[in-house]
Design a protein around this nucleic acid. Structure first.
Lengths: 254, 254
DNA sequence: ACAAAAGTGTTGTAAGTACACCCATGC
DNA sequence: GCATGGGTGTACTTACAACACTTTTGT
């Protein structure tokens, strides 16, 4: 690595962008904010912002997450019943094409956040508004007439979102991450509907039940029952300690 | 995102660091270079360097790879018999702790490269020398007396290397990536020794053979045989088109 | 009574493990 | 001959898909 001479390296702006996913109305949705400025003024974009001078990348992402949604990241090992603290956050990938931002050289470290269904997004920062949008709408290629709601995302955010969705889809296979989409206590049926929404498939409720309750460390009984989904009362569960599932959940249609 | 005002964001240096892995003498090895300058002068470090003004991150990583090893990245879809062009390169993760470099704020986009066994590394850039070192030596915690060879890596490179090794270990499970450690044509036994070295386990040769030859798209017969490993002549194979393995290879001891 | 969702039992099948066993070369 | 690695056959076991069936609520 070169010495201290600042002229030896070009300066970059470094940002964090967030792919915040949740499951609403049986569909996988992402948080998008409307851009208030050029370029891409008025278009939807992923939330994000500059990394500060003395801030770690993960810290910057967690800060943006709070500013945009009020969500706090779950403390490892400290199970909480506060639905606003159950979020999962991890680094996704870094995007640094020289022309991805027309104004200057920006390297964006994208992060992936998974959250339970929240009442409503709160707009923050320099965004005019924010909303949860089904990822299917956001990612469908421009075909035929397009209304403003489903216009393509700003910058390279469609690519970032696609990468985040793909990460989530594959990661719930072999980890217990799907519980990050659920409230602190949930039923097996609710967990199944998360898998169905994220993967976009229908799962056999009977086999699913046997599988998740039989995977060690995935779920622990919370003690109560609920009928909030109708039908026979269902046992409530909390996430077990396990992070890696053995055996993994299998995504159909291979 | 904020307007053009450069005072609105702090400037960062952006580098790429490379985790270059290969299998030599039945052990997983990483390429390390000796640092010629402060800080960490004389210590081993991962190869890397600054991203240039108009350069994509992947381009920068590929350029560093050529400079340090002479390896070229494999062209997708263009199978080559040149052993120096078969390398696999992918982004690994980004490291941006404010204090990871004592001189200035550096964000490093680490990349993972997999290469077949090469004759010898060639030192390049500002490194005094370069060598292949077994990852077990590089990653073992400081315990007891340590010679210079096994001194811990500079900066946060031990963490980066550990992340790269873990990525490689898990990715050869469900992808055909293990062939990137092999020469253009190889035997089933050579491929098995790759898995054994990367995972650090012993595999049953009989079941392994059945499995890899039975996984569609993993291997295609190259037509010849070889006795370079001794014993009965073995069929030579080339990588098949498949990138994702179905069913996946299973890592023992879970 | 009926619909709806939860949960259990059973059966066929795909895939993995652990071996015994045979094959083709170099020395 | 014998050592060495390559390759096939087979029995045992696990895990998954499919689907019949029972349970417990709300209306």
């Amino acid at each position: 690595m070169s010495p201290y001479d600042p002229s030896a390296f070009p300066p970059f702006a470094v940002t964090v962008d967030l792919v915040v996913l949740t499951v609403r109305h049986h569909a996988l949705c992402a948080l998008v904010v409307r851009r208030g400025e050029q370029p891409f003024q008025g278009r939807w974009a992923l939330p994000g912002g500059f990394v500060r001078e003395d801030e770690d990348l993960t810290t910057a992402a967690a800060r943006e997450l709070v500013e945009e949604t009020g969500l706090c990241v779950a403390e490892p090992g400290a199970p909480t019943t506060d639905p606003v603290k159950g979020a999962h956050l991890e680094q996704l990938a870094t995007y640094g094409d020289p022309r991805r931002d027309p104004r200057m050289r920006v390297v964006s470290v994208a992060h992936l956040a998974l959250a339970p269904d929240l009442p409503a997004p709160r707009a923050g920062g320099d965004a005019n508004s924010a909303r949860w949008a089904p990822v299917d709408e956001l990612l469908q290629e421009s075909e035929g007439a397009r209304d403003e709601q489903s216009a393509p995302l700003a910058f390279d955010h469609a690519q970032i979102l696609a990468d985040g969705v793909e990460r989530a889809r594959s990661k719930i296979e072999y980890s217990s991450l799907a519980t990050a989409f659920c409230p602190p206590e949930f039923t097996v049926g609710e967990l199944r509907r998360v898998y169905e929404a994220v993967w976009g498939v229908a799962l056999d409720p009977r086999n699913f039940h046997r599988k998740v309750t039989g995977t060690p460390g995935f779920l622990v009984p919370a003690g109560g029952t609920t009928t909030r989904q109708g039908g026979r009362p269902a046992q409530l569960f909390r996430p077990g300690g396990a992070t890696l599932l053995n055996p993994p959940m299998l995504r159909p249609e291979v």
